[in-house]
Amino acid sequence: MAKTKPAPVESETAIRVRALEAILIEKGLIDPKAIDALVDTYETKVGPRNGAKVVARAWFDPAYKQRLLADATSAIKELGFSGMQGEDMVVVENTDSVHNVIVCTLCSCYPWPTLGLPPVWYKSAPYRARTVSDPRGVLKEFGTILPEDVEVRVWDTTAELRYLVLPKRPAGSEALGEEALAALVTRDSMIGVTVL
């Protein structure tokens, strides 16, 4: 028979959050169902699969790619993705001579509509501290080693523009349709810490 797990002890932080939410509900200031809806949106609906669709469309349709690089916010909205922390978007393209990587040294700015909520490492001190000063060292930790003649272009996105990297289309993907292309695109390649 499996042992019954003891109930986990609620952390001090968890208690404090519960207390704050309870007070705000009692004062009639928040509706907890709105919190449920927000959590559901960013846990199940908004995430890096959205960004992958944008990238695949850009690879598949040269006219779309042109629009995306010229006015990313509108082009991304064409696919139905917009809003909080993606109000003003910029897409930067990786080429044979340029590799882009995104960071926010001051907090953790990140394009929610296309990538969802940021992973812990993106918000962590080591990533924020080192990406600007030692980008090649950071990329190496993600298994990404680039030739010296490639310009590593680090975007410290500390204002209200949000950035998405358009990775290089992988060799051998010429025959693939848009959906199959999207399946190749990873979150980390759209932050720019990996290549495909």
Binding site: T105, L106, W121, P126, A129
Partner: peptide, 14 residues
């Protein structure tokens, strides 16, 4: 304002 600081160790993605 962390940009350029040293000593935080590896990034360790989960």
């Amino acid at each position: 304002d962390l940009g350029g600081m040293h000593g935080f160790g590896p990034i360790n993605p989960e």
